[in-house]
Write a protein that binds this DNA or RNA. Structure first.
Length: 432
RNA sequence: GUGGAUGUAGCUCAGAUGGUUAGAGCACCAGAUUGUGGCUCUGGGGGUCGUGGGUUCAAAUCCCAUCUUCCACCCCA
């Protein structure tokens, strides 16, 4: 007996019955992206490691301890992508998208990889849905991007909180860092162990520490900062105004800082109330320096990413309707084994007319075939019997009522198609 | 990476203080007279008790290690 092999830690198999929910979310995302004028972009799942080192920031946790990095056969360092923005910014430069009409609006969906300790809602291979806009300075685009992410969630009926903040630009962020550093350095003893390290390495992170004693100090420090330069302050104010115009509710959270280095100005995060520690279902912001950092022309950028697994988790948590597993329209049952050939031909004909049709392939008794038909969820069953066939007819059984009628073989496809149409206008393909 | 919990049939779980062939419900498969599902009844298949060591005459039950999942932290999607 060979020993069995398990999937790697922090990965999942998405099985039939579950995968329909994924498709539902993915298809909804595609639809809304097209509505908002985004085109899909697909980039490799692995890139040169340097791309992430430079783009995401060498002192971030993602780069320091969460990347799947390996050498290929010619000793080049590659990494599985831990996020989607840096690769797309790279493509924008490499594929010269800056030379076409601006702004460039793209969306993507696919797996990301981070070597982290797994937990519910946190996996080593997880999936993101995201958008990016390049070449738009206007605060109106910030508002639209944020509004679109909330619109997407709202269409599922999700109740989520939107937190927004401005983290400043290359001019005012260093000022803020300095102020924060100066303000907290004198109170080193009051900070938690982690924050003492953060103070030297990245003081802004102290703002979202969850330790109680740091929280108080952080909020105090953040409120008193008021560090934004006039341009950034004006930008943030306009973003908020546009959000108001769009009737998007938000919480201004001065402690919101994002974990990736490339963010400038607008930062936002979508949080689900009460699903444990993994309550962030998505987030994003502006990254005006990123394209230039990759050797492109100075180009503003903004985008967000949402976690598919977390979206599904919250949807389940909030008891929202999601599609049930794929159903059949018709199931074919034969009364005698000799009719199997006829059944196969009929099946193909039904399928050729767009029906979702299937039959038994285990050589079961008629009774057992009916049982399978019942489990398949097909609302109709076609029963082939030699008596009826002699008269050129087949039996069509309505599985809901149990009633049964005889239909001329020649009319079968048309009759079934009609029945299915009326059936599915009555029965919605969703369950609570 | 740190701390804590968990792991018995496909699923949800029973299996006091270690002792004969490890159980239930659900699911699965098959029957309950001639060609008909969902209810009921009967029967059946399926478990190296996460894995590997150890203690013992004897371990699912005790000890160690390891893996998985979960919770908190770190961080984030």
């Amino acid at each position: 007996m060979p020993s069995s092999i398990n999937r790697p830690r922090g990965t999942i198999d998405v099985l039939p019955g579950e995968v329909e929910k994924w498709q539902y979310v993915e298809e909804s995302f595609r639809r809304i992206c097209r509505e908002y004028g985004y085109a899909e972009i697909r980039t490799p799942v692995f890139e040169y490691t340097e791309l992430f080192d430079r783009g995401v920031g060498e002192t971030t946790d993602i780069i320091e301890k969460e990347m799947y990095t390996f050498l290929d056969r010619s000793e080049r360092s590659l990494s599985l992508r831990p996020e989607g923005t840096a690769p797309i910014a790279r493509a924008y430069v490499e594929d010269k998208l800056f030379s076409g009409p601006q702004p460039v609006k793209v969306y993507y969906q696919g797996p990301m990889f981070r070597y982290d300790r797994p937990q519910a809602g946190r996996y080593r291979q997880f999936h993101q849905l995201g958008i990016e806009v390049f070449g738009a300075f206007s605060p109106a685009i910030d508002a639209e991007v944020i509004a679109m992410s909330m619109d997407f969630c709202r269409r599922f009926g999700l109740k989520l909180d939107l937190h927004i903040n401005s983290v400043g630009c290359g001019v005012c962020r260093p000022v803020m860092r300095e102020k924060l550093y100066a303000g907290l350095r004198t109170r080193l003893e009051d900070l938690c162990e982690d924050c003492r390290l953060r103070l030297e390495r990245n003081p802004l992170r102290i703002l979202d520490c969850k330790e109680k004693r740091c929280r108080g100090m952080a909020e105090e420090a953040a409120a008193g900062l008021n560090f934004l330069c006039p341009e950034c302050g004006d930008h943030f104010e306009k973003v908020r105004n546009y959000l108001d115009v769009l009737d998007v509710k938000y919480i201004v959270d001065h402690c919101l800082v994002r974990g990736l280095d490339y963010y400038t100005r607008t930062a936002f995060e979508i949080m689900a109330p009460g699903i444990g520690a993994q309550r962030s279902v998505g987030g994003g912001g502006r990254y005006d320096g990123l394209v230039e950092m990759f050797g492109g022309p100075p180009t503003p950028g903004i985008g967000y990413a949402m976690g598919l697994e977390r979206l599904l988790l919250v949807m389940q948590e909030q008891g929202l309707p999601v599609p049930c597993s794929g159903r059949l329209d018709v199931y074919i049952v034969t009364a005698e084994a000799e009719l199997e050939g006829k059944a196969l031909r009929l099946l193909q004909e039904l399928r050729g007319n767009g029906m979702h049709a299937d039959k038994d392939y285990a050589g079961r008794s008629m009774k057992a075939q009916l049982k399978q038909a019942g489990k398949s969820g097909a609302p109709f069953v076609v029963i082939l019997g030699s008596d009826e066939l002699r008269r050129g007819k087949v039996a069509l059984k309505d599985m809901l009522s149990g009633s049964q009628t005889e239909v001329p073989l020649a009319d079968l496809v048309a009759t079934v198609t009609g029945e299915i149409d009326t059936h599915f206008t009555k029965v919605r393909r969703f369950k609570g």
